[in-house]
Design a protein around this nucleic acid. Structure first.
Lengths: 247, 247
DNA sequence: CAGGTACCTTGACCGAGATCAAGTGGAAAC
DNA sequence: GTTTCCACTTGATCTCGGTCAAGGTACCTG
């Protein structure tokens, strides 16, 4: 309920995702054109932002909060296919109907662009199309890394992989680096983690307990995680722990 | 050994993937610029086209044959993360080192573009960038469908899903439609199917035998498949069998 | 404070798919 | 023709993670 009004409108110049979102490369004049077709929408934790199959009147960016992309089979089995963080893009230009459910896992603010005007803007300003291509290629890489997790990793490795992804993302946002202990809050319930990793929530819970018992992680409450040794966690994830590159 | 010379060079105008590849939208003048930086390369079945980590001097399109994108863990577990068919794009503009292994599963002809010139061409001709965005978005959708298969489907459903993907692709290339029996040759070994689906080759073999026993498919030899009833197969895959849309 | 609810943990048991092992079939090689 | 090899099949057994079930904990609300 609090502080929502501040998002009813603000300038692109002051936008917290200005330098990472689909508009990152736009110049002042292009931003102006975007401003003309944009509007903000707020969603509460748990709310469904888009239902699969819905007509898409808009595309847009996550400004703050975390949302999930999920696919559901007729019998109810669900698989998360995307985790949307601030600056991530929602929707597909040129597509009428949504292909996935989009749900807010925390309170979410979205910067929406009316779809048709956005599409024509895209065809005239290469900066937007080019940035969107770059972001889509990154997402494709992430999806492929995730496929290895889903197809070939054990439950323990899956949990360790998820934790290391979240840890790296947090480190990259907060600019803290990966040496020394890392702390963060899990933005997902056990069930959402299970849907992410192709597991059941019971298995997620058991493996988190096991990693805690083995001192790979520390837990404060149920959501606050401390990682004393990032290298150790990455070994558990089955990843090359040779430092690696920070995106 | 036979008939390779014909691919040493031919005109883009006569190219079998002219209307589907990254160059699909290019006009005559743009094609000319592409011609100047392109060359053909032939690979034999089983050959590795690109090793993960290699410097990428080129990007390109599969002209004919089938290749796979795979990721491998240190202990040897491998997961296929992409199946490359004629017209599919290989490589990522702007990236120096290959992220995945690319292997030819049949004899493959590639149309390669030297990377640096291709990148600068891309920034001047929106037709290429736009087509690449479209293809990347399609690949991302395919990857997400695949994530549902890997994370939530049973072994039997996985096999049925793979067969239905191949069947639909063949139908779309040969323009035969999906009513009536469908026939095709499996382009993958049991092991490659296992790597695709996150299974072992033994499980793949058993499930194929089971689908044959239950008359969902017919086998002639080990590779030639006949699908008497596509709706039945899609039920087995756990997909909505409501006809669906053909891409 | 009691009661409810949402989220999480833990235990007991079970089964789908992995693992280990042996055998088959067909095509190329000698 | 037989040897070899590779892709594949099938069987026996094991195990990881799923299923079912019973609490536990923190935070609401009345």
């Amino acid at each position: 309920m609090t502080m929502k009004a501040q998002f009813d409108h603000f300038n692109c110049e002051d936008c917290p995702i200005r330098h990472r979102a689909v508009c990152a490369r736009c110049d002042a004049q292009e931003l102006e054109q975007l401003e003309a077709i944009k509007y903000y929408r707020n969603f509460e934790a748990g709310q469904t932002i888009i239902w699969s199959g819905d007509q898409m009147g808009f595309v847009g960016s996550v400004v703050s909060g975390i949302a999930t992309l999920t696919q559901t089979m007729e019998d109810g089995r669900t698989q998360m296919v995307g985790l949307l963080l601030p600056s991530d893009f929602v929707g597909r230009p040129g597509r009428d109907a949504a292909a996935y459910d989009v749900q807010a896992t925390t309170d979410v603010v979205m910067c929406c662009f009316r779809r048709k005007p956005f599409e024509s803007l895209m065809s005239t300003t290469p900066h937007i199309a080019h940035r969107l291509l770059q972001m889509t290629l990154d997402e494709l890489d992430a999806a492929r890394e995730w496929m290895l997790v889903l197809g070939r990793k054990t439950a323990r490795e899956k949990i360790a992989s998820l934790l290391s992804i979240i840890a790296r993302r947090d480190a990259s946002i907060s600019q803290k680096g990966l040496s020394g202990p890392i702390m963060f809050d899990l933005p997902l319930t056990r069930e959402a983690m299970a849907d992410y990793l192709g597991l059941t929530l019971e298995t997620v819970s058991r493996q988190i307990s096991a990693l805690k018992r083995d001192e790979v992680i520390k837990l404060t409450g149920k959501r606050h995680v401390t990682i004393p040794d990032m290298g150790r966690l990455m070994e558990e994830a089955g990843d090359d722990s040779d430092g690696g590159y920070l995106n």
